[in-house]
């Protein structure tokens, strides 16, 4: 199972970045809604759309998919 994104669907809202429990443990500032200052996180919003950086850290809990309002991030 892999983490996938579709940038065409993405609104750039950043909910997945904030909701992801792994992101929070890597970079606590993202949980406060601030943009991450590191590419060590699984995903980040860059230039208005979501981008995957370290997807190998994903534990496949499915939280991002649960919260994404536009089905732009999912596990397959």
């Amino acid at each position: 199972m892999e983490l996938k994104v579709n940038q065409d669907n993405c609104l750039g809202c950043g909910v997945c970045v904030v909701a992801c429990p792994v992101n929070v443990s890597i970079s606590p500032e993202v949980s406060g809604g601030h943009g991450s200052k590191t590419t060590e996180t699984i995903m980040m919003v860059e230039n208005g759309v979501i981008k995957l950086f370290s997807e190998d850290k994903c534990t496949k809990c499915g939280t991002c998919q649960v919260f994404c309002p536009t089905d732009a991030i999912w596990l397959e």
């Binding site: 199972m1 496949k60 809990c61 499915g62 939280t63 998919q65 649960v66 999912w74 596990l75 397959e76």
Partner: peptide
């Protein structure tokens, strides 16, 4: 064991 979290939460057919 598969990715149980993703499978259960997002109704993935796996």
């Amino acid at each position: 064991l598969g990715s149980v979290g993703a499978i259960v939460r997002n109704d993935i057919d796996e």
